[in-house]
Design a protein around this nucleic acid. Structure first.
Length: 286
DNA sequence: CGAGGTACCTGACAGC
DNA sequence: TGCTGTCAGGTACCTC
């Protein structure tokens, strides 16, 4: 479900509730969600009586820093690493609100509320690792550059694209190349840049890459400003839908007219994913 | 390295 | 109404 702007929105909506809360207990309703550690029982024991010091986003991962207020500095510090995959939701709700269907984990908080992970397709995962052990947390340690950070630099981007023969869409979806882009925002960025998704990365001109660089940052920033894209069931921690679906230029618009040139938008398959393009604005050469 | 397939799951929707 | 097929915001793993 969620890509970078949706995950960022979830993190921001959760931060105002979770920071400095203490986890008083919890329940794992479906053990499949706990990818690490192996013993699901130990999972709840380890987070109980921990304080949530911070909540951050890295790519599409959500990271809660946990520490034990009772223990000495540096001891018993954990990171709870969460990936929502296609259909995961994190909701902050009063404990008296009925538990939604498909809830896999519930964390009890010291303010009488609960953090609940709803995981409809059961693809979402959590890893609980000791601070500094991020290599145990799935793909987190292998993420590429963060596109909205100052580390994302045009000259670097040009150099790295020039050495790859893969199709640009697949590369932008590759989380170890660039962190956080998914199917919607890749299609939107490529449209803004006027680049066909099947073009080879190494075949793009510097001018095209410069447009793409700007388009990636622009589309992600706009997505965040609009609190994400809700096509189906994405909501933030308050259960509130996003708004960016009203501003999509190509994604999901097969057969509708391009907003720039009125050519009908086409749907094709690229990198195994449905891809939406304007065949006039995004020409496929080579 | 790159491409394509499968698998993991549930639900929504189109078509018959 | 109800069946079947297809599709979905993601990623890991396999083969060629």
């Amino acid at each position: 479900m969620p890509e970078l702007p949706e995950v960022e929105t979830v993190v921001r909506s959760l931060a105002k509730y979770l920071v400095d809360r203490v986890i008083t207990g919890g329940t794992v309703l479906d053990g499949r969600i706990v990818a690490y550690p192996d013993d699901t029982g130990g999972f709840i024991d380890k987070v109980t009586r921990k304080r949530i010091d911070s909540i951050q986003r890295r790519g599409k991962y959500i990271i809660l820093e946990l520490s034990d207020p009772e223990s000495k500095q540096g001891e018993e510090e954990y990171e709870l690493v969460i990936h929502l995959r296609m259909s995961g939701k994190l909701l902050y709700q009063d404990k008296n609100v009925p538990i939604p269907a498909h809830t896999c984990v519930v964390f009890d908080l010291d303010d009488g509320c609960q953090l609940r992970f709803i995981n409809i397709r059961k693809f979402g995962r959590m890893h609980l690792v000791k601070a500094g052990q991020r290599e145990l947390a799935g793909g987190l340690a292998n993420l590429g550059v963060e596109p909205l950070s100052p580390d994302f630099q045009l000259q670097d981007f040009i150099r790295r694209l020039k050495e790859r023969s893969a199709r640009i869409k697949g590369l932008l979806l590759n989380q170890s190349f660039l962190a956080g882009m998914g199917n919607i925002y890749v299609d939107e960025a490529l449209f803004r840049a006027g680049i066909h998704p099947m073009r080879k990365a190494s075949g793009l001109s510097e001018a095209e890459i410069a447009r793409l660089f700007k388009a990636i940052r622009g589309v992600l920033q706009d997505g965040i400003e609009h609190r994400g894209t809700t096509r189906k069931d994405y909501v933030d921690a308050d259960g509130q839908a996003g708004d960016f679906q009203n501003y999509l230029q190509v994604y999901g618009r097969e057969g509708e007219r391009c907003k720039l040139c009125s050519t009908p938008i086409e749907r094709i398959k690229v990198a195994g994913r449905s891809s939406f393009v304007c065949p006039a604005c995004q020409k496929f050469e080579r």
